[in-house]
């Protein structure tokens, strides 16, 4: 059984950009332990000399012309999707 600590959960939450509540952290710890322990069974399978599969239909890089396609959507349509817009720009808190 893989052990996952509260600290591990907090670390993973940071990597995942998730701000979990205390109650969520407790539940998550148990769930992650159970799930990781379940998938551990794969470690018994010998994969020496086996190549990994990332793509199943053998497609390779497909090139197209470097031309902009706006999919019939203009800038205003996209700006409308943002929760906070000011002077045609998406507003966020000060970064620097």
């Amino acid at each position: 059984m893989t052990h996952i600590s509260q600290d591990d959960v907090q670390y993973l939450a940071r990597l995942s950009n998730l701000e979990l509540t205390d109650a969520e952290t407790v539940n998550m710890q148990a769930d992650l332990e159970n799930i990781i322990s379940y998938v551990e069974q794969l470690s018994q399978i010998d994969t020496t000399g086996v190549e990994p599969t990332y793509q199943v239909t053998d497609l390779k890089n497909i090139w197209r012309e470097d031309k902009v396609d706006n999919y019939g959507v203009d800038r205003d349509d996209l700006l409308k999707l943002s929760p906070v817009v000011e002077s045609n720009q998406i507003k966020v808190p000060k970064v620097l």
């Binding site: 959960v9 993973l12 939450a13 990597l15 995942s16 998730l18 979990l20 969520e24 998550m28 769930d31 992650l32 799930i35 990781i36 998938v39 794969l42 470690s43 399978i45 994969t47 086996v50 190549e51 990994p52 599969t53 990332y54």
Partner: peptide
């Protein structure tokens, strides 16, 4: 959603990548 994102972060994080993600993609080949 959070569980799957966190599991994903776990299996991709440094130190675990080869043992989980890469190994799983090899078993996928088998």
């Amino acid at each position: 959603n959070k569980r799957r994102i966190m599991i994903g972060s776990y299996v991709l994080s440094s130190g675990f990548f080869d043992a989980y993600y890469l190994h799983a993609q090899k078993v996928r080949t088998l």
